[in-house]
Simulated scan of single mutants.
Amino acid sequence: MKYSEKDIEFANQILTRRNELDNGLVEAWMSDPEHVEMLREFVAIREEYTNWNFEVVKGEERERLHQAISRKKKRQLVTRWSVAASVVLCVALSVLYLWNDSYWAFEQKFPQQVNLTQHKMANVELILADGKRVLLDGSGQQIQDHGVSGIKDDSLQGLTYVQAKALDKNVTEVLYNTLKVPTGGFYQLELSDGTRVWLNAESELRFPVQFGVGKREVYLRGEAYFDVRKDTSRRFVVHLRESNVTVLGTSFNVKAYGDEDYIYTTLVEGQVRFTSEKEHEEVTLRPGMQSVLNLKSGKTELKEVEVEQFTAWRQGRFVFPSTTLGDLMCQLKRWYDIDVVYLAPEAKGYEFRGAINRDMDLKNVLAIVEKTSNVIFDINGRTIKVTIKSK
């Protein structure tokens, strides 16, 4: 989608000096859905790249890829690395262009057929304390729940509870809402304490409308990225299957899907404590570390990881520094709503490296995977059959 220079300049003014603009002009401008989409894209890119030193990143990326390609491996693996490297480098260079070019050519970052903004909002649902279900669409609607007002489905920030207030101050009951994100979606949420949460596809979060005086506790199924507002008097606890994560103020990603045998907690900054309830085992993570709980054995492994692989979904990308085909297809399954059949089960263990935008057409995604691995995909509607290339 192309934007005019005038619209780009006005969008930038909204984000940098909103209080100086006439409210009527802003409201009229934002009545156009394409303008709202533009603002979302501005916000997403700013969040991701504000603290980057682009010259350093560009140099590091090139050096890493050259080293990877020059390793002495089998000819087939070198070919796979070369193709994957070109994909990653193209993504990195397009980001540099987006940031430095005065026209912010978003079509290079979002080049494919699927509208990511519309895609992520489809059928996102909020379940209120009284059981009422509300479909969310970022329209700015005000939501009232059981005597609590100020809940807003904001067009830029997603669902926010910062202004939530009980109409009757004598009511002390803690009310819980549940945000459900379907296959192929993701959504932002701002809790009453200012903590921000991003929910990935097929995920749900149960949380208080307003936190009380004790611990701040939420309940997650699926995957979410948390940016927790620091409060030394009230710890923040994320309850998962047979485990929990405890923090004061930090940023981390949790992956805890019901159909997987592992729970992954990846720390971006700050410090968290992961606790396995089955084995009563506790581990403390520092930035760049990940805890992996094996739900069958109850054992927790601690390791260092490339954080971006586990958080890039928040910016609309899949990043695979080193991923099995089985795990890759599992992620695609949640996003594109597909069924995967392995005619050659051993293909699940094949390794894939690369980076893919989540707004790409599925056929294009599978074409990239085919070029960088030894598999072939047969697409029949929603069913994808996986076979191995003949020698």
Rank of each mutant, 00 (worst) to 15 (best):
M1F: 11
Y3G: 05
Y3K: 08
E5N: 11
F10C: 00
I14C: 02
L15R: 00
L15Y: 02
L21V: 04
H35V: 00
E37L: 12
F42C: 03
E47I: 04
Y49T: 12
N53G: 04
F54G: 04
V57R: 13
V57S: 10
E60Q: 14
E61A: 15
R64Q: 13
Q67H: 15
S70N: 15
R75D: 14
S82P: 08
V87L: 15
S94M: 12
A105K: 15
K109R: 15
P111I: 02
K120S: 10
V124A: 02
I127Y: 09
R133Y: 07
R133N: 10
R133F: 08
V134W: 06
G140Y: 04
Q141D: 06
Q144C: 10
V148R: 01
I151M: 06
L159G: 00
A166V: 09
A166W: 09
V171F: 08
E173F: 05
V174G: 06
Y176G: 04
N177F: 01
T178E: 06
L179G: 03
F186C: 14
Y187P: 01
Y187A: 06
L191Y: 01
E204V: 04
Q210V: 10
G212C: 07
V218D: 04
R221T: 13
A224H: 05
A224V: 01
Y225C: 06
V228F: 05
R234E: 03
S243P: 07
S243F: 06
E269R: 13
S276C: 07
E277D: 11
K278D: 10
L285F: 09
G288A: 04
V292S: 11
L293F: 01
L293I: 02
K296A: 15
T300D: 12
K303Y: 10
E306F: 11
Q309K: 10
F310Y: 13
G316S: 00
F318M: 09
S322H: 14
T324P: 06
L325S: 02
G326I: 05
L328Q: 07
L328F: 01
C330G: 15
L332M: 08
V341I: 11
P345S: 04
Y350V: 08
F352V: 10
N357R: 15
K363C: 07
A367V: 01
S373C: 01
S373I: 01
N374K: 10
G381P: 06
V386S: 06
